[in-house]
Amino acid sequence: MKVLGISGTIIGAKTSILVHKVLEEVKKEAPELETELLDLRDFKMSLCDGRDPSTYPDDTKKVIDLVTSADCYIIGTPIFQGSLTGALKNLFDHIPPQALRNKVMGFVANGGTYQHYLVVENQLKPIAGYFRAYVAPGFVYAHPDHFNQQNEIVDEDVLSRISHLAKEVVLLQKALKGAADLSAQR
């Protein structure tokens, strides 16, 4: 099983750092799981216009394939103007809804105010609902105060929430896999 971390921005480092840290905790919790980080800063994607993904002239098809082949996700975004990034929204627009159905998602976000955590509840979770994905109950929101000058996460509460999120994602994914395996045996 593969857990794909998605850093849903093309600028900055904090989102990628948060997602990577959750993936590290997933590996501690379940070393048998494969983890991979998809950092949108490393790929060139076209704006979604509804065409066949293989006709895009850049990394779009490769990114879609990475996302659709994963079993569960840690999805991160910085909060800009009270919303998720356009880059992450564009990625969601490219993904066929059936590709994420019944898969587990955990969310992390970072932003410049302490109120922007609401974007997870009011925007990211409804998107997961549209895809009919399972959402980990907890999430992680980090403010610039939670990082030191070297962009290391130093806030103990944030680190604890990262650990809890990793455990929830692993627990949900294993439970769903176990239920699917049991159902297949019948």
Rank of each mutant, 00 (worst) to 15 (best):
residue 53 P to Q: 01
residue 88 L to D: 10
residue 67 V to L: 07
residue 18 L to W: 12
residue 30 A to S: 15
residue 82 G to P: 15
residue 79 I to N: 10
residue 56 Y to R: 03
residue 77 T to K: 11
residue 13 A to M: 14
residue 47 L to G: 07
residue 80 F to W: 15
residue 33 L to C: 00
residue 34 E to Q: 14
residue 29 E to Q: 15
residue 62 K to M: 13
residue 38 L to E: 12
residue 14 K to G: 04
residue 13 A to P: 00
residue 70 A to Q: 13
residue 41 R to D: 12
residue 29 E to N: 13
residue 77 T to Q: 13
residue 16 S to Y: 01
residue 19 V to E: 09
residue 71 D to L: 04
residue 65 D to I: 04
residue 36 E to P: 14
residue 24 E to W: 02
residue 77 T to W: 13
residue 86 G to I: 05
residue 85 T to F: 05
residue 46 S to C: 06
residue 26 V to M: 05
residue 31 P to F: 01
residue 65 D to N: 07
residue 39 D to T: 04
residue 28 K to D: 13
residue 81 Q to V: 08
residue 43 F to W: 10
residue 32 E to M: 01
residue 61 K to Q: 13
residue 71 D to P: 06
residue 47 L to E: 04
residue 82 G to A: 14
residue 25 E to V: 01
residue 63 V to L: 02
residue 73 Y to D: 13
residue 57 P to T: 03
residue 30 A to Q: 11
residue 47 L to N: 09
residue 63 V to P: 08
residue 37 L to W: 13
residue 36 E to C: 07
residue 23 L to C: 03
residue 44 K to R: 10
residue 33 L to G: 01
residue 74 I to T: 03
residue 61 K to V: 01
residue 41 R to P: 11
residue 20 H to Q: 15
residue 55 T to I: 02
residue 46 S to Y: 02
residue 37 L to C: 12
residue 73 Y to G: 11
residue 74 I to K: 07
residue 66 L to Y: 06
residue 25 E to A: 14
residue 59 D to N: 08
residue 27 K to E: 15
residue 82 G to C: 08
residue 30 A to L: 03
residue 44 K to V: 09
